[in-house]
Amino acid sequence: MSNVPADLKYTKSHEWVRTLKDGTLEIGITDHAQHALGDLVFVEVPEAGRTVKSGEPCAVVESVKAASDVYAPVAGSVTEGNARLAAEPETLNSEPYGSGWLMRLKPAPGALAKAELMPAADYQKMLDAEGG
């Protein structure tokens, strides 16, 4: 069974979103996604300052058997990419919801409300339906 923390929001494409105290969003990929990819060997995160549209590919996660794009769940401007992942991509396998976060993003005005995010229960249901 995958770990799906109740306090986060999720996308259909297996990203999670956490709202930090200052309103910034922290974004990563779910435990289910990291497990499906297998041991990660390379992670490319966006540079600070980059503006992304909702659904735009903004990071790449690569294992020995797959390379996947990570899509921005919400439009906004990137405030920070997780530099640690360049040297230690395995962090994303071991702590997908903690120090394995991918990027932090300041959402564009009104973007968060427009984003198609689901609560943990719904994401869990989706995984169950997929057999995961």
């Binding site: 060997v41 390379f42 690569e62 294992s63 020995v64 058997k65 797959a66 390379a67 794009d69």
Partner: peptide, 14 residues
């Protein structure tokens, strides 16, 4: 062989 994830048989259109 390494870094094969960049290659067409995995990455296809990308």
């Amino acid at each position: 062989l390494t870094l094969q994830a960049r290659e067409q048989h995995i990455r296809r259109a990308r």
